[in-house]
Simulated assay, not measured.
Amino acid sequence: MSDATPTTLPAWLAHQARQRPTGIALRHKRLGVWQVRNWAQVQAEVLALAGALRAAGFGPGAQLAILSRPRPEALFAALAAQWLGGTAAPFDPLEEAAGQATALRQAGADFVFAEGLEEILRVRQSDLAPTWLAYADGRGLVDPQVRAGALDYGRLLAAEAEYGAPPVRAEDIAFAFYRQRVAGVEQQSFSHAELLQEGERLVRGERLSEREDALAARAFAASGQARYLLAPWLLAGFRLNFPERLETRDQDRRELGPSLVLGTRETYGRLHELVRQRLPLPGSLRRRLVDWALEPDGGALRSLLGQPLVRRPLRDVLGFSRTRVALLVGAPLDEETRRFFTGLGIEVRNWPAAERWHPVRGRDVTGWPSGQPQLA
């Protein structure tokens, strides 16, 4: 690979693996312990998956549907598909099953990566017959009919890795997103060039570096995650952290203390409500102290006393003890939530969602609206 500036997500992965092979790329909490992978290990795993996909006939223009909660294997599967010039299509397994089944059928899910038993059952119940189906977590997969034809992630890593330059181009579609609406299934897609442009804008604007720690606590089935978390991770080379599971995300955030937080209006609203449930009753002396300390325009005395007595403990409760950059994608915060975080000394900055949904007609698997040119 040349020393020219990388122009695709897989090329940036290769760049980071070459520049800092032993640097920590990501961590994933499992059974209460943070498991670590460096950049060289991430690239090796992605290449192994790419080899398995290529052997199954996946290539430029193909699409990999990913039905998983946030976990490293899902991210590696997306990068493997992109390494081969294909598209990753993430689906959130927490969405309503019937509508998602329609979206999966419209997407033409011939290649599917599923998290585990529940997600494989969704695929089976959607009347899909993918030519390639792999899973990350085999717990509970005892029914031969459910497991039939499904490939274990661990065995995929035995595939021979190819270390050549990825054939993907900057204009190729990196991610396609689908959603079910009353009028039918809609889609939006983003090229490597678009994602890297948005990611670079964020890296420069927020002065992100390899020293950041970010928590991937939401499913990647949203364009904001691709633009403002995955692309900056590859560009800046910081550490990406995955919680053990959705139910432990708040505990894992408190333990980790990420410097970079990315969320939606619902994310910050939920955290605000979490703190409100723990506050003293309104009208009590302790509550008046909290309200006094959280007043955004408090002056020197509030700043001096409020930090150790109120703001620092509350930031610890939220897992924002080290947070330097708090990002919001989509709808803005309500005024009460905004004032709460401002009172904690956390400026939540809104980044545009840039949504551009269009109806899916037939099996529009390339990411282009009907009538536009298809990928080679």
Rank of each mutant, 00 (worst) to 15 (best):
T7K: 01
L13S: 09
Q19S: 09
R20S: 13
H28R: 10
Q35F: 03
N38V: 03
N38W: 09
W39Y: 11
A40D: 13
Q43D: 15
E45W: 04
A48H: 13
L67T: 06
R71H: 12
P72M: 13
A74E: 09
F76R: 04
L79Q: 15
A80R: 14
A89S: 15
F91R: 02
E95P: 00
E96R: 15
E96T: 04
Q100H: 02
Q100S: 07
T102P: 00
A103I: 03
A107H: 02
G108I: 04
D110N: 13
E119A: 15
L121T: 11
V123T: 04
W132D: 10
L133P: 03
A136Q: 10
G138E: 14
R139L: 03
R139M: 02
L141V: 15
L141H: 05
D143P: 01
L151W: 02
Y153S: 01
G154P: 02
L156P: 08
A161I: 10
E162W: 11
Y163C: 11
I173K: 12
F190V: 11
F190W: 09
L196D: 11
L196K: 12
Q197M: 07
G205F: 02
E206D: 05
L208E: 10
L215H: 08
L215V: 12
L215Y: 10
A217H: 15
A219F: 00
S223F: 00
Q225V: 13
G237V: 02
G237A: 04
L240F: 11
N241P: 01
R245H: 15
R254M: 04
G257H: 12
P258T: 11
P258C: 07
S259A: 09
L260E: 07
L260P: 02
G263V: 00
T264F: 01
G269T: 05
V275T: 03
P280T: 06
G283D: 09
R286Q: 13
R288F: 06
L294S: 08
G299N: 07
R312C: 01
D316R: 14
D316C: 01
D316L: 07
V317P: 00
F320E: 02
V325H: 15
G330T: 06
D334M: 10
G343M: 06
G343P: 08
L344H: 02
L344K: 11
I346P: 02
N350F: 00
P352R: 07
W357E: 00
P359N: 02
V360Y: 00
P369H: 03
A376Y: 09
